[in-house]
Amino acid sequence: MAEQVIPAWKRWLEGIGEQGAFFSRFVRNIFAGGFEWSEFVRQCYEIGYRSFTLVGITSFIMGLVLILQLRPTMVDFGAESMLPRTLSIALIREIGPVITAIICAGKIASSIGAELGSMKVTEQIDAMEVSGANPIQYLVVTRIIAAAVMVPLLTLLGDVIGLLGGFLAINLTDEVSFFLYFNKCIASIEFYDLFPAFIKTIFFGFAIGFVGCYKGYNSNKGTESVGVAANSAVVMASLWIFVIDAIAVQITNLLYYQ
């Protein structure tokens, strides 16, 4: 038993060390000069534009369902007028960033993991390395930064679309004008609702890009490992999202609510 536990710990520690080394290569290459702008723009398109529909639909349904779920309880308390405020705070502070990040972990981290994993299997990364080119700069830096830029933007768009879903849900039973609804939503949002949420989505995006790249870049050479890289990228990125979220809420509470 002890023999099994020790290698497991050893592997875990080795994994941490490898991730640290990969992170250090990433940081060094950001400042190494020669940023790959064209690949960065292509990745922004792949990560942002191609995920927009999925994030939009999910956020719309999320806003709609939240209002439908909240309404009976709010009616019991005679607080129907609080629905826009409740939805906007819930969406902007927590549900929007986390749901968007989880969707992106499923879509982006897996796609980066599979793409780089397949490049590893077909020796494309080795080919880049032996040619004297810099695969970290071309493949990794661009993808991680693109994810860190696009996930916050997707979250903001998702938040707005989620509020639209809420507007539709409210109007299924009541009649509220578009301007009144959005006025109430916007009036209830403070700087400390929006800013910490936006900052944490940058970290979510970074974690999604980093984990996808790390898992793909370090996958083994075999077709099976492409699937393993994609799958473990989703699992690990999702876990990181919740860990970052837990840390972010503590920091936000310390800074703004004490």
């Binding site: 490049m119 077909t122 020796e123 494309q124 080795d126 080919a127 880049m128 032996v130 040619s131 004297g132 080119a133 810099n134 071309y138």
Partner: peptide, 26 residues
């Protein structure tokens, strides 16, 4: 120069882009 068994062409790029890559990056 290293010629891989599979050719290891960058499959997201055209042939022209594959050939341009070492010229512009290396």
């Amino acid at each position: 120069g290293f010629l891989f068994q599979s050719g290891a062409l960058y499959d997201s790029m055209t042939v022209r882009e594959n050939l341009e890559f070492p010229l512009t990056r290396v």
